[in-house]
Design a protein around this nucleic acid. Structure first.
Length: 893
RNA sequence: GCCGGUGUGGCGAAAUUGGCAGACGCACAAGACUUAAAAUCUUGCGAGGGUUAAACCUCAUGUCGGUUCGAGUCCGACCACCGGUACCA
């Protein structure tokens, strides 16, 4: 395929100029702007600027990538292109745009590569970052590279550790509903010993140590958070995960469950994403009910969302791991119960989910008393009751819960109907809302009234209370890995204490062997000198999970080189919008894939809310608006993967068609949020379009001279571009015709509206429509061409800027800072409009009608039409509908 | 099962408040230019019928039904696919 235009010369040239002039640097309050910077020229600012002088902020953020060894695939730049187009658009509209990029570079692949080859993860990571950066830069994104962050850089993770210490030194005060310094925690006077007081404190910190059943992945040699386990396998690598009790660092995210849920109402995220977070947090409202154990002191507390069905509770079930089982089991059932517990504990999570859900369980010999009717009901254990949810015990109401019913049928337990289903439905097995029956004081009440009445009754009798439960678990925060942030924690005599903030960062030791030790200690334990301090303290040898660095990187961008703080207060207030009432609170737009819907996005919101409570940030939510890009499938419509051999490498596309064509195609494929298949033929289509734009402005004969000059120049010097001259149709000092203005302004209108609505594909088609018309113009006013290039600039910045330079008759300037064109509605008004005419809703004719024709004259015109006459002949007109400017419909019979 | 999303030509898609279904692009076909090819330009292109050619007619937005002068768009039921989630009491 013949080259449409010399993108291979233009693109490196424009990128070089952007780099040299720091064209896309975003300015913080208090910074000194050189007066020749295009931002200074556009806004008439120079020198040191105060926040009040700066234009409104627009913070547009990409999810920063993990720099993998395989480099960028075409899915990454989809989101990056969308944000870059908007960043350029907003700059043109006069905003101070913050558009940064960085690297989420701690992670498993570099460490596993290190274990295999002995190459230090630092080396691997640096090589991968430089490859990613080269690829991203080749696409001409307008990032402010002076703010680049790397989570593995000690200047960065120093502050990750610092924030961890903030969590460590805080507790959640239920009364103020806020995270507060641990110093505000009142220690009960009853605690006599120093140990007791310390552990009282330690148990309440937001970062705490807990002995808990964790997800252990033997293959990876580490524990995983619940969020990282998918179908009983590790999210990374798909290795089996088993449950195992271990002592680990946890973060008290559950304290923020309510805030994390309520905060979703303040932000503009898609419904599906909010739903995913809501489901993960899993709020359910109901009651706690206390059951006295028959002939014993113990009380079993259950959680239920249906207290109204308490009269129908015919047995109880405890999780096999429930703490009371040992005390309650009767002598004759002991062996059988023990056998069942072994049986269920041996089941891995994988087996539990894979096995057909045949209910199993065993009676433990004891009975409980149903508080409402004093009935003795048997107590069973079964693994369909989870120790990790609610109280680990349930009251079983088989008539109105499908799992309880299945269990009751298998083990012949009584089933008692207490809710009457609506007409036509079977009450047994009915789980919806109905009317209470067989329930004494609840009889005849609808479910919605029976619930609160039962809760009142229980509270009065001290047999229960209202209760809200969350599915969300505390965040398991430690990993047995090398390539992560070390914890700023020291241990001595079984007690932990924080490293002082002034001693940060705690950098990892130098290792040659990155495997865990033979006795199962994390790899950091291999560095005896590093781990054992002179005073006898031992460093924590766990590291933080990969999510730690991504929990706050969007804040570091605001003030990336600040040595004294994680982020300066003034910068934070300006960019996060709290300094300006009209600004969006938080990141204005955050774009990334759905794979982070619960993990990263929940964790980052949690950290942000802690920082907010501690008055370190000024907004309650980090990301105001969030959009998920859809995935790009291979040409075969399948997910791209190496094994299918359908992966498209952006490098190949860029070298064949150029970055501008690549960007344009990524956006032209379809709506950003949809998943859609790649088609390289489609790249050729937009590439041809860019070629038409080029030829619309450049003299084709001068291209021959240019090509010849280039052919003999081994350096392929960009200076050869000076051989190019303007197309002879380009005229300066000429008024555009009304038709030309109409085409141009229709294009301005459509592109502007589509950019505001993030409809990039239709914006591009509007520009194609304009160019298809403009290539037929005999005379092309330079002014029209310049305006069009301003519209094209966000999408195809290299080409637009180069051509714009030619039209300026000087090769200077960054059109990214040109004011965005304003469309004039007056130019779009048509003298006459073509109105479709329908008979009984079927199109029969089109008539030219003057713009301001009234109803009567339109009717007259319509009835005079031969085609219409033929269609209504012999029928009577029932109705004649005229929608001015739209259409006419005649109803006949 | 539950939650969310999506179904429109051969393909990617468009139709922003209910108002001309298929813009724009790909693929394909024919023609022009060329010794030839590539590139470029022009024309055609939902299906079926009809005509020398047109005109014109019928059908068509996953399926079935409804509301309306008028439905891709609104309502009801269903089907398929994609994503999330799952013994959550």
């Amino acid at each position: 395929m013949r080259k449409q235009y010399p993108f291979d010369i233009i693109e490196p040239k424009r990128q070089r100029i952007w780099d040299e002039t720091a064209a896309f640097k975003a300015w913080n309050p208090g910074e000194t702007i050189p007066k020749n910077h295009p931002f200074a020229e556009r806004h008439g600012l120079a020198g040191e600027v105060a926040a009040s002088q700066l234009p409104p902020k627009y913070y547009i953020l990409d999810m920063f990538p993990y720099p993998s060894g395989s480099g960028l695939h075409v899915g990454h730049p989809e989101g990056y292109t969308a944000t870059d187009i908007l960043a350029r658009y907003k700059r043109s509209r006069g905003f101070n745009v913050l558009h940064p990029m960085g690297w989420d570079a701690f992670g498993l692949p570099a460490e596993q590569y290190a274990i295999k080859t002995g190459q230090h993860p630092r080396v691997t990571t640096e090589a991968n970052i430089s490859n990613f950066k080269r690829q991203i830069k080749s696409l001409g994104f307008s990032y402010d590279w002076s703010r680049e962050v790397d989570t593995t850089d000690s200047d960065y993770f120093c502050w990750t550790q610092w924030i961890f210490l903030k969590l460590y030194h805080s507790w959640f005060n239920q009364e103020t509903n806020k995270a507060e310094s641990i110093e505000t925690l009142t220690i009960p006077s009853g605690l006599e010993t120093e140990e007791a007081r310390t552990s009282y404190k330690d148990e309440r910190r937001l970062a705490f140590v807990a002995e808990a059943p964790v997800n252990w992945c033997p293959e990876l040699g580490t524990v995983l958070a619940n969020e990282e386990v998918v179908d009983g396998k590790s999210e990374v690598g798909g290795f089996p995960v088993v449950r195992k009790p271990m002592r680990q660092w946890m973060l008290r995210i559950t304290a923020f469950a309510g805030k994390l849920l309520d905060g979703l109402d303040e932000i503009e995220w898609s419904d599906s994403l909010k739903e995913m977070q809501r489901n993960w947090i899993g709020k359910s409202e109901g009651a706690e009910v206390h059951f006295q154990v028959a002939d014993a002191q113990e009380v079993i507390t259950v959680f239920t969302t249906r207290p109204d069905t308490l009269f129908g509770a015919t047995y109880m079930v405890l999780a096999p791991e429930h703490a009371l089982v040992d005390q309650l089991v009767t002598e004759e059932q002991k062996d059988a119960v023990e056998e069942y517990r072994t049986f269920s504990s041996r089941k891995s999570d994988l087996e539990r989910t894979e096995l057909a859900k045949e209910k199993t369980g065993i009676f433990i010999g004891a009975y409980a008393i149903n508080p409402v009717n004093k009935e003795r009901i048997p107590i069973w254990i079964a693994d369909y009751v989870l120790s990790t949810y609610g109280t680990g015990a349930i009251m079983a109401v088989p008539a109105h819960d499908s799992r309880d019913l299945e269990f009751a049928e298998k083990f012949n337990l009584p089933v008692l109907k207490v809710v009457k289903a609506p007409e036509g439905q079977d009450s047994i097995g009915f789980v919806g809302e109905g009317v209470s029956v067989n329930s004494d004081f609840l009889n005849d009440l609808p479910t919605c009234e029976a619930k609160p009445k039962m809760i009142d009754w229980l509270s009065e009798k001290k047999a229960g209370s209202r209760r809200t439960n969350f599915k969300l678990r505390d965040w398991l925060f430690s990993r047995q890995r090398f390539w992560g942030e070390p914890f700023p924690i020291l241990w001595k005599d079984g007690q932990h204490r924080a490293v002082g903030a002034h001693e940060l960062p705690v950098t990892p030791p130098d290792l040659k062997d990155f495997k865990p030790t033979s006795d199962g200690e994390p790899p950091l334990a291999r560095a005896a000198e590093w781990a054992n301090l002179k005073d006898g303290s031992i460093r924590e040898t766990n590291t933080m999970p990969q999510w730690a660095g991504s929990c706050w990187y969007y804040l570091r961008y605001l003030d990336a080189s600040n040595k004294g703080m994680f982020c300066g207060k003034e910068a934070e207030a300006y960019w996060m919008g709290s300094a300006d009432e009209t600004a969006n609170p938080g990141v204005d737009l955050y774009v990334g894939g759905t794979e982070h819907a619960v993990l990263h996005l929940l964790y980052a919101r949690f950290w942000h809310k802690v920082l907010y409570d501690l008055e370190l940030v000024s907004t309650t939510e980090p990301f105001f608006k969030l959009v998920n890009q859809g995935i790009i499938l291979g040409e075969d419509g399948q997910k791209m993967s190496k094994s299918r051999g359908n992966v498209v490498n952006p490098d190949e596309i860029v070298s064949a068609y150029g970055a501008d064509a690549f960007r344009l195609y990524e956006m032209f494929m379809g709506p950003l949020e949809m998943s859609k298949p790649w088609n390289t033929k489609g790249v050729e289509g937009v590439y041809r379009f860019l070629g038409r734009v080029w030829r619309m402005i450049v003299n084709e004969e001068s291209e021959v001279a240019f090509d010849q000059a280039l052919a003999v120049d081994a350096q392929k010097d960009e200076a050869n571009l000076s051989k190019l001259t303007l197309n002879s149709t380009i005229k300066f000092d000429i008024e555009p015709t009304p038709d030309q203005l109409k085409s141009l302004h229709a294009c301005i209108k459509k592109v502007t509206e589509d950019l505001d609505g993030m409809r990039f594909n239709t914006a591009i088609s509007a520009m194609m429509v304009f160019v298809n018309e403009a290539v037929n113009w005999k005379v092309r006013p330079a002014e029209c061409m310049r305006t069009f290039l301003t519209l094209l600039q966000p999408f195809a910045p290299h080409l637009a800027e180069e051509l714009h330079g030619m039209l300026q008759e000087e090769n200077a300037g960054v059109i990214a800072y040109q004011p965005w064109p304003v469309f004039d509605p007056a130019l779009l008004i048509e003298e006459s409009v073509e109105m479709p005419v329908q008979v009984n809703g079927k199109l029969r004719d089109r008539l030219k009608v003057s713009r301001d024709a009234d109803r009567q004259s339109i009717e007259k015109l319509v009835l005079a039409s031969e085609k219409i006459k033929a269609n209504i002949e012999g029928k009577s007109i029932k109705k004649l509908i005229v929608v001015p400017g739209k259409l006419v419909n005649i109803v006949v019979k």
